[in-house]
Write a protein that binds this DNA or RNA. Sequence first.
DNA 1: TATAATTTCTAACAGCGTTAGTAAAAGTAG
DNA 2: CTACTTTTACTAACGCTGTTAGAAATTATA
Lengths: 201, 201
Amino acid sequence: MGIAERKIRQKEEVKASILQAAWALVEKEGWQSLSIRKIADAIEYSSPVIYDHFANKEAILLEFTRRGFRQLNEQLVAAKDKFTNPEQQIEAIAYAYWKFAFNQKEYYQLMYGLGMPGCDAVKQIPELTSFTETVSAPIKEMIAKSNNAGADSFLKLHTFWSTLHGLVSINMMGKNNDHKDELNAMVLKDFLIGFVSGIKS
Amino acid sequence: MGIAERKIRQKEEVKASILQAAWALVEKEGWQSLSIRKIADAIEYSSPVIYDHFANKEAILLEFTRRGFRQLNEQLVAAKDKFTNPEQQIEAIAYAYWKFAFNQKEYYQLMYGLGMPGCDAVKQIPELTSFTETVSAPIKEMIAKSNNAGADSFLKLHTFWSTLHGLVSINMMGKNNDHKDELNAMVLKDFLIGFVSGIKS
DNA sequence: TATAATTTCTAACAGCGTTAGTAAAAGTAG
DNA sequence: CTACTTTTACTAACGCTGTTAGAAATTATA
């Protein structure tokens, strides 16, 4: 009897439509004004139905956070795989990260800012692991090739990630300067030069 | 007739008590659960009274953001003034910044994260200027003393600030590792070495 | 077809920021 | 000291929010 299967399939269709509708709303009005009732309206169900698929609103946002990290990771991997040289790889990763942050602004804000998701929430994002691995690989390679074999890759990863995120978020909240793009490109380049040479030495 | 003066004084007392009560609530329950009604309860007035002193809730948060930057700046200046050498100054500033972020966690989260205050809001924070100047001064000095006189101080300031903020915010959301403090100290040191040597070269 | 299980709904609770309109208090003038 | 005007603070409400309880409707099983 395929009845149970069909039910499961239908249930997942509704769940997918919830996420789809939610994302459409986020893109149109920003994540700030996303509400359960609006989602329910969009999928033409009553609001309590949503709680049959998600424990609460935060769970929906968490799902998007996970998707965001998955997507970010895909783009980083794609950028990285265009090169074999780890220096070029790390540079490509940095630019891809930057691009993602501003092209998928809603995702980025959800993933990071935004009420600084509780420490508990962060643990529920296994996608962070892939992200970490993607960035770690070229860093480890660089260290191995360098004269500075004692360097700690975890530490370097942390520095790399933090700086990138810092640049992004200071920029997102910052004034809309005319020379913004040029400045950003320079700051990014400036950081990368320092970062790479810091590993080598 | 000092009646008008007394009235102004009384009005400002109420305004001060609003901010005081609000801050007490933030410290007890976090900024997330701060509400106009709770503030009103705490100062033993009805909620609409608050709107005689602040345009809206955001204005209250903005006031705290400004106070936060003022306080941060004071601490940075104090740290800086312990040294005359710009390298030591910039290092002291970095540590003071770090200390502020974690000692005054609520402030820091309000100032930065937290819904990434609208671009409009940022312009309304004149305190940012003093902050910028405090950090710029030693950077400019370092550039002047270096062989690399062409370096752009604004660019370096941006890098410095971004990296610090990145380190802080990645850490605030991060897991509570056992070796957290040691790692942080190392990352901070790692960054500072790279930053300073990057300016000199 | 009757019963059991599931799905979906309406209605409500408790909270939020904010505003309109009224009652009370305080200050001013005759 | 009374009459009027201005300021101040209140109650009540609007339109939202996330979330839950309980009834109604639908669907599957015996």
